[in-house]
Design a protein around this nucleic acid. Structure first.
Lengths: 355, 355
DNA sequence: TGGCACAAAGTTATCGTTAACGCAACGATC
DNA sequence: GATCGTTGCGTTAACGATAACTTTGTGCCA
């Protein structure tokens, strides 16, 4: 190791013995290039006005030249906080939660928060694994679909000490903050609407997973409201697999074979209803005259099928936006609270009986 | 600070002066509780067979009791690698890429890789910002929609030195590995199909964003193939905003007012086509007899609208699965390669002329 | 001209984990 | 019984940033 006394070249041997000299630049690389300390470079990023304008400019140029990308592993570890928001959904197919994520992520982006996504696919073991995995990144907050989680998940989330926003459901034990709606009320509204339209014998069709508590609550609300109107028995045809038009078509077919007298069919989701409509058409059943169909979700195509589909429209964008707001508020010390978000019954042709 | 000479209690003041003593447990907490060194606890996690079974068990019990969640900021910083895969999409609405993400994330989960999601919404500045943000987490790989990116994005991704998988498109300059299909060929196939069905005057309708190169390529292919068949002029009605049934309905309406003689309408996406079908129905145009409609995407409802929609079905699940495979292969030292994935023309009623 | 405030930059400790290395205890080998 | 490889664990030094201090320089005022 040679030391040049004029101070220009102190030690260049490390340029030679390292195996991968041209590796990813660090704050130290920039500092060395500019000829300042590491901390000054760091300040030029985080607190620009504490660094002389001319020097700041040289630092920025150096960063740009070297294509410097900060290492947030180091930053997060040191600063004891990150800009990650964990988002846990139960499904991604068929727009169910896609637009929530879309709104949420872009609202968070404005606050420089980064989404880390996990999809449990309604599997509780995977939910535990994924929540643990997300927490291991020390996120600033976690947003998660539903308020019914495996006990371990609740324990982990509570122990994490960060804001937890539960989306899409309300009316139960909440960990911290919840933004959603009452699914039993949705089921009740479906029943009442059908009864108001004069439909008598109700049926329920769709995917009903063991761990989809929201779907179960809607069915519960449906049955309770039907019972109140004197309708005791509801024909049900469900399967644990994910909803799709094909599933709806098959289940509706099976239902019609076993139950000759059906007034209206409640579908767990719009995509299932699409298949149900197709099944009914094939069998010559007129909708809404012979059989009414109502669903849940308000898929983008719900108003475009024939007949157009009466369904429940949850305000997904509002949930996404309010969740982003709640995350920011909670991070800044706001109080936890539960917000109930509106939904609408979209009254369309599939239940519009021409009496 | 008192020092107890028998060695049992060296320093317990930190239990008293810290403000938040019962904070998140670390490896050190576990180590202290069990009475071993930090490294032994770390080994019990990463290389269990290097730790005595009995001791390992005690460590695991302690971890469970304290609800220990590893800090991967520290782990990643120290180990110089993470299990994060950055996923950059251009849109999340309307299932366009949701099922790719769904498949990709669950395939990655099996390899204990964690998805960090970003949605550019077709905004190049946001793409730069998001890519930089994702890279700052030092991901193991990045999967990104498209092969046409702002130069800065390409530069950043190349400089990162990690595997980059470009999805959904092929046939251009690829950074590293690409898995997709040729969009010009899709456009050509749409044109050929319509011409084969006897449609003469073609029109194009939909959302056409400045930065959606794929859509532009499809239109290019469409025009080239039409020209080859002697069809020079194609009536176009596009807008830069996102596609939706309402947009399709409006644009189709405007198109019909300005162009009286239209044979078939090519829609940029299925959701736009849903609105186009509605517009045509309202104006008494019969599909497919008077006007044919073909689209792109094969939305879940495409087979359920009336008439059922002829469209292009890209194999999203295959792209998701192959992308996961490619990521793992590239991480393990595999060679970059470009894979072309099949797509199908779903011939349905909206172009089935009963000649 | 000395003292003092303030701006601008450097020093040092720290975050929680992993990796490289060290070392003791033990059984196998010649 | 000296040597050696293994097993099982502890020590120490990174990793790349941030934050709390400390130091140095500069202008202003009495």
């Amino acid at each position: 190791m040679t030391i040049d006394m004029d101070g220009k070249h102190i030690d260049e041997t490390k340029e030679l013995d390292g195996k991968d000299v041209r590796s990813v630049p660090t704050l130290a690389s920039i500092a060395e290039k500019v000829g300042v300390s590491v901390n000054t470079v760091s300040r030029a990023l985080r607190a620009p006005n504490t660094v002389r304008a001319e020097l700041r400019k040289r630092i920025n140029v150096a960063m740009d030249e070297l294509n410097y990308v900060p290492n947030r592993l180091a930053g997060g570890l040191s600063g004891m906080r990150t800009d990650i928001v964990g988002v846990v959904v139960t499904s991604l197919y068929y727009s169910e939660f896609a637009s929530i994520i879309d709104t949420l992520q872009s609202a968070l982006l404005e606050r420089d928060l980064q989404v880390m996504l996990a999809n449990t696919r309604y599997n509780p073991d995977q939910e535990i694994k994924l929540v643990r995995s997300i927490l291991s990144w020390r996120p600033a907050a976690v947003a998660i679909i539903g308020i019914d989680h495996p006990p371990k998940v609740v324990e982990l989330l509570k122990a994490s000490g960060i804001p937890i926003i539960e989306m899409w459901d309300t009316g139960g034990n909440v960990i911290d903050t919840a933004i959603g709606f009452d699914h039993q009320a949705v089921g009740a509204a479906q029943a009442r609407h059908l009864i108001d339209q004069g439909y008598k014998k109700l049926a329920f069709v769709g995917s009903l997973r063991e761990n989809d508590r929201r779907a179960q609550k809607r069915l519960l609300g449906l049955e309770a409201e039907a019972a109140r109107a004197g309708i005791a028995a509801i024909a049900k045809r469900t399967e644990p697999q994910g909803g799709s038009p094909d599933l709806g078509e098959r289940l509706a077919g099976e239902l019609l074979e076993t139950h000759s007298e059906i007034g209206a069919i409640v579908c767990n989701s719009d995509v299932v209803a699409f298949g149900v409509l197709r099944a009914l058409k094939k069998r010559g059943k007129r909708v809404p005259e012979d059989i009414g169909v109502i669903a849940f979700g308000d898929n983008e195509a719900a108003a475009c099928v024939t007949p157009s589909l009466t369904t429940i429209r949850p305000d997904r964008e509002k949930i996404g936006r309010l969740t982003a707001d709640a995350i920011v508020a909670r991070i800044n010390g706001g109080e936890p609270q539960t917000t109930v978000v509106d939904w609408q019954l979209m009254f369309r042709d599939s239940t519009r009986r021409k009496d």
